[in-house]
Structures are given as C-alpha cells and as structure tokens.
Design a protein around this nucleic acid. Sequence first.
DNA 1: ACACTTTAGGTAATATATTACCTAAATATG
DNA 2: CATATTTAGGTAATATATTACCTAAAGTGT
Lengths: 164, 164
Amino acid sequence: MKDSHTIKAEFDAERLDMERYILVVLFLVQQRWSYIISRDLAGDQITTKQWLMMIVMTNAFQNPPSMQEVADAMSTTHQNVKQLATRLETRGFLKIERDPENKRILRLKATEECLEYWDKRTAEDIKSITSLFRGLEDSEIKNLFEIMGKLEKTSSELYIEAKK
Amino acid sequence: MKDSHTIKAEFDAERLDMERYILVVLFLVQQRWSYIISRDLAGDQITTKQWLMMIVMTNAFQNPPSMQEVADAMSTTHQNVKQLATRLETRGFLKIERDPENKRILRLKATEECLEYWDKRTAEDIKSITSLFRGLEDSEIKNLFEIMGKLEKTSSELYIEAKK
DNA sequence: ACACTTTAGGTAATATATTACCTAAATATG
DNA sequence: CATATTTAGGTAATATATTACCTAAAGTGT
C-alpha cells in the first residue's frame, strides 16, 4: 500500500500538471480572444489592445489619467501606452493634453466621439463577451470570477517583485 | 416585490459583469505572467513565447511538426512561427529541416542542446509555475482546470469560425 | 496528361511590448 | 538655496503577431 509521502507526491504531481495545463491554456485563450475581438472591432478601425486600454481608462480612473498611471493599471510600460495612445489620438478617440499643474505629465482624455462610440457599441460588446463564455454554468462563472480575482492578486505581487 | 423577469435581468447583469471582469483580468494575468516568466528565462537567452512554443512542440507532437502544424496548435500564423523558429534556430535549440517526402514542408526539430536545457530547467520550471498559483486551494485548481478546459474548447470553435 | 485548386511557406509592412538610454521637471536633503 | 534624487515622458532598437500578397509544390478531376 502507498505510504503518505507517496500519496502526497502524487497529489503534488497532479496539481502541478493541472497548473501547467492552466498556464498554457490561459495563454492560448487570450491569444484566441484577442483575435476574435479584433475581428469584431475591425470595422471600427480599432484593435483589441486599444479597446482594452479604453476599458481600463474608463473603469479605473475618474479623471483623465497620466500615461504612467495607465501603464501601471495595465502592467505595461509608458512607452507601450504612448504607442497605443498616439494611435487612438489619430483615430480621434483620445486627446493627449499636458497637465498645467505639472508640466511633466500628459493626460489622456477621451473625446466626445469616443464616448458616443462607446455608447453605440455596448450592445455588440455584450453579445461578443457573452459568446466567449457560452457553455459555462452560472456557478462556473461565479467560481471563475473568484479564482481569477485571486490570480489577479498573486500575479500583481509577483509582477511588482519581478519589476524591481 | 420583484417579478421573475426583473430577477432574471439582474442575474444576467451580474453574470455579464463577472464575464467582463474575467475577460479583462485574463488579459492582465497573461501580461504579467509573460513578464514574470521572461525574467526567469532571461539568463538563458530565450523569451516567454519561445519557451511556450517549445512546450507546445514537445507536448502536442511525437515527430518534428511542420511550421503550419505548430501555427495551428498555437492558434497563430505560419509567419509568426517562422519568426520564433528562426530565433530558436539561431539560439541553437531548433533545426529547421526540409521534409524529403514533401518538398513544401519545413519541419522543426529540437536539438540535443534543447533537450539538455529542458532537462536542466525542469526543477526551476516547477518552482516558477507553482509560485504563480500560490494561495489557491487544491479544489480551486481542480475547478479552474475544468473551467479552462471548457474555455479552451469554446475559444477554439470561435477562433476557427472567426478565421474563415 | 492538363487545368484547377489547395497547401506550405516566403517577404514585407504595421501594431504591440519590451529594453536601454536620454531630457527635463519636480522633489528631497544638506 | 543648491545639489542630489526621483519621476514623467521621449527616442530608438528588438521581439512578437497580424494582414496582404507572392511562389511553388502537391492534390483533384476530367
């Protein structure tokens, strides 16, 4: 009969295998979602990453955020935000304005056109988001919601640690 | 008192809000994991995406796969696989060889150095993967494993549909 | 065998994300 | 107040991922 050490080792192996699977599949799912959403947005001349940045900007901030604030909120670099913001400004969705209080800071301000677009798209956004999760029970969504909350927290800590 | 339609609508809103959160956080977590792992691998002169491609190659295929096969397995394009494969070949981890049976096909073959590296890294891989999931109960890992399996399936279908 | 289509991969341009390094404004500290 | 450090953002180079378009080999149908 298996002793408790063996049983523990097998448990760990099983867990590790599942973690490995989750890791690879999470990358795969984000890759596919990114593509699927980009197709949805193609007609509007914006990309998935630009759409994502607008979501973060409107959800995480009351007032127009600085480039660095957006970069932190998205766990990316100010250089990356600059590239996205420049394209969104060209597209007419953003205005990049210098803060009069602090001459180093550039603030990203959503334009009227952006707000109108956002209103207009809500229905389609709901349809495409819903379709990504079809086949999942309400209870599974709830579970996933809570687990992703924990992964968000852990990944944030490890990210900050790795950045140092 | 709320009628059943109202209750249903509130349920749907709650679910949609959770789905929206899951979507954004999944992108965020993959962004952070990608960065964290890249720091781990930096000393070995490979990137997270290169590491991921090697994992897929060794797990999904018995024999050296073609570029297109790897692209399909990773839900990306043959052009992208080409870029990654070229860098891995320069790094000494891959050999790109023409198939004598079918002159159109290029097969990606792991080198001796790659296999040795893989053996050597196993312990570190386990440590870094495990750390990504710290704070999650075994039951949560199991739940997440199953739910990600469903998302993998749905996203695959939607991806294929969007590709058409 | 011959035309038609499909499949595998190539090049090039563009978008996203990083590292590396720079300037200038703001802040801290003696 | 003068100097040192930190902070916000700039440019440029490189890696990854896509679209668009091309060639050639292989497969199909008659």
